[in-house]
Structure formats: structure tokens, C-alpha cells
Simulated scan of single mutants.
Amino acid sequence: MNKKLIALALAALPVAHAMADVTIYGTIEADVESNKTYANGVKDVNGKPKAVSRIDDTGSLIGFKGNEDLGNGLKAIWQVEQGLSIDGTTVNASNTFATRDSFVGLQGAFGKVRIGKLSTFLNSDAGAPDAWIYGNKGVNGQSYSSINQLDGRVNNAIRYDIPEFVAGLSGAVVYGVDETNATNKQNTFSFGTTYTNSGYFGTFGYQRFNNNIAGNKAGNYWRLEAGYNANNILAAAYYGQSKLASGTTDATFGFASTTDLPNGSELKKKEAGLTLGYTFGAITPKFSYGRVWGASVDGTDVKGHLNQYVLGADYALSKRTTAYASYGYVQNTYRDSNDNKFSNERTVAVGVQHKF
């Protein structure tokens, strides 16, 4: 029996060696929230958001990645990354795996080329002003005031990252193929670039969505970020504009009711904001302000604006574990088709994040 066990152990050695370059990584995070937001979908008898308590997974994930040295400075690279839901809520109704950035590609002196499901440059390399940990039902993160709302991942995509020709300069181009019909009517294109020097940075990203708006019009979104992130100081600001097809979720921003804003209408809006933070010891207090204004639907201006305020702090329990608390508040002056003002919203959250 012992000889058989030894033989099995020896047989497994080549497999272990072959997997030696595989890295397993991830993030486990969750919080306790008190929410009074439209995103929750819980309303009182007057149709206004009602306060509820939540235990929310705020972005847990697990990933596997690796590479193989092909010689002459060339490497094969790959990654499979999957979103998790440790609170028991279904986040993957399609029952697919690799819901986050997953790819195979090559890397060398020419840069990096990847094929798969890939982030736009704004999603992977920008977002410094949104320095918060939060879920998708609260208003304690700046995605509610538009930043990062349009950042995301592209299915059926190819991405090229440029080599660092100049120290501190990086950039990428992403093209996504629409496979829902034979004519590829809704292909997407995006690019972005960042320059950093001594803690100062500037980032620009642009996305184009073919046939996004009714009448086969293309939609687009762009954002500019700038600031300083070094020596325990974070000071970051952003400005952006979007022209995209409206959807039923836009009604929660107050641009109109879902009946007044049918899917496919041309919805334009502007966004801007800033974040300030300072780390002393293990504590990082932060404050963010975001604003959405200048909205129009099919060329008709929509009166109103949206202001968002987020205040909170992170506490580093270790290099990999962070406890945090945050409070988000949204002031909404938009009105629906019956001239009813949309309610203000708020979220209070306390949570923990661990990276491995």
C-alpha cells in the first residue's frame, strides 16, 4: 500500500510543477447598510423610497492568472476572474463563469494584446476620484453621480495596451464585437491614456457605442480626471459628458418617468466632482462631492440637477484587511411627469474588505 501511495505522489509531481505559475487572488468584502434609495425598489404608499436594512456583498471576487515565458521577451498571459456574492444574493443570473476580466493574450516589447471579456481603460485604469467601497444599491459611492456608471467590461473584445514609450505614460484601445446579429450593428470602441509624474496624474477616456440611440445613432461618453495621489494625500477631480440611449433606470435620476423617457431616447448629461482624503497612521478620512446637470432628452432640456455627498473613513487593520464606514447623501431636484419632486436618498454603511 505504501508503494502505491509513493507512486501516486510521484505521478502528481509534474502536475504540480505545471501549475507553479498559476496565481490565485481575490477580494472578500461585505457591509451592513441602512438604505433609503430608489435602487432598493422598496417604496412607501406614496411611491417614495423607504428605509431598509441590508447585508450587502460590495464586490467580492476570485481570480486565477498565469503566464508562460516563450523566449525573446515574449510571454503568454491569461486570466479568469469571477464575481462572488457572499451574502447569498444571486449576482450571476445567466449562470456563466468568468463574469469579470477574463482573457488569453501575448505580452512583449510591442505592448500587450488580449482577447476575451475586457475592461475599458476607464474601468481598469481610471476612477481615482471614486475611492470608496460600496454596493450597487446604496449612494455611498460616486457611481451614483455618474462616474464609473458607464465604465465597464466589453464582451467579445480585443484590447491593446501600449508599451511605456515615455516614463509614466500608459494607454489602451478596446474594440468589442456585437454578436447579436449578422451585421454587428452595436460594436463598441474605447480608448484612454494616463500620465503620472511625482504623484500628479491626468487621465482621459472615451467610449463610443454604435447604433446605441434610436434611429441608429451612435452614443458616446468621455471623462477627464486629474489630481495628486502620493505622500498620504489624495486630491482628485473629474469632468465628463455622455450622449447615450436612455433606459428605464434613468427615471431614478429624475430625468423623467419611464413613460416619458422610452428606451432609445437620446439622453445627454454632464458630470463633475472631486474627492479629498488624507492618511495618518492607519486611518484615511475621505470626502467626495459629485454633481449631474445639463440633462436633455432628444434635444429638450430637463430642469434640475443632482448633488451627491459622501463622507467616511477607512481603517487599515493590516496590509490586506480594511474596515470602513461611510455616509452618502443625494439631493435630487428633478421632477417626474406629474411635477412631483424626486426624493433625496441616503446610505449609511459599515463594512470589511479582505484581499488575498
Rank of each mutant, 00 (worst) to 15 (best):
T196S: 12
T196K: 13
T196N: 12
S198I: 10
S198A: 11
G199R: 00
G199C: 03
Y200A: 07
Y200F: 15
G202T: 06
T203N: 05
F204R: 00
F204I: 05
G205I: 03
Y206P: 14
Y206M: 13
Y206A: 09
Q207M: 14
Q207K: 09
R208Q: 15
R208K: 15
R208E: 12
F209Y: 13
F209P: 07
N210G: 09
N212D: 15
N212L: 05
I213A: 12
A214R: 08
K217Y: 13
K217S: 13
K217W: 08
A218E: 13
G219W: 02
G219Q: 03
N220E: 14
Y221K: 13
Y221R: 10
Y221W: 12
W222D: 11
R223Q: 14
L224T: 01
L224N: 03
E225I: 01
A226D: 02
G227S: 12
G227C: 04
Y228C: 08
N229F: 12
N229D: 15
A230M: 05
N231V: 03
N232I: 01
N232G: 04
N232V: 03
L234T: 10
L234V: 09
A236S: 14
A237Y: 01
A237F: 05
A237K: 02
Y238D: 00
Y238Q: 00
Y239F: 10
Y239A: 06
Y239L: 08
G240F: 02
G240P: 11
G240S: 12
Q241P: 10
Q241K: 15
S242H: 08
K243P: 06
L244V: 13
A245R: 07
A245P: 11
S246W: 07
G247A: 14
G247H: 09
T248D: 11
A251V: 07
A251K: 04
A251Q: 09
T252E: 12
T252H: 09
G254F: 01
G254M: 01
A256F: 03
A256V: 05
S257P: 05
T258W: 08
T259S: 09
T259V: 10
D260C: 11
L261T: 06
L261N: 12
N263T: 11
N263Q: 15
E266G: 12
E266W: 10
E266D: 15
K269I: 04
K269R: 15
E271P: 11
E271F: 07
E271I: 03
E271D: 09
A272D: 01
A272Y: 01
A272G: 07
T275M: 11
T275Q: 10
L276T: 07
Y278M: 05
F280W: 09
G281F: 00
G281I: 00
A282Q: 03
T284C: 08
P285K: 00
P285I: 01
P285M: 04
F287A: 14
S288C: 10
S288W: 05
Y289A: 04
G290H: 05
G290E: 01
V292T: 14
V292R: 13
W293C: 02
W293K: 01
W293V: 02
G294E: 00
A295W: 04
A295M: 07
S296T: 05
S296V: 02
S296A: 09
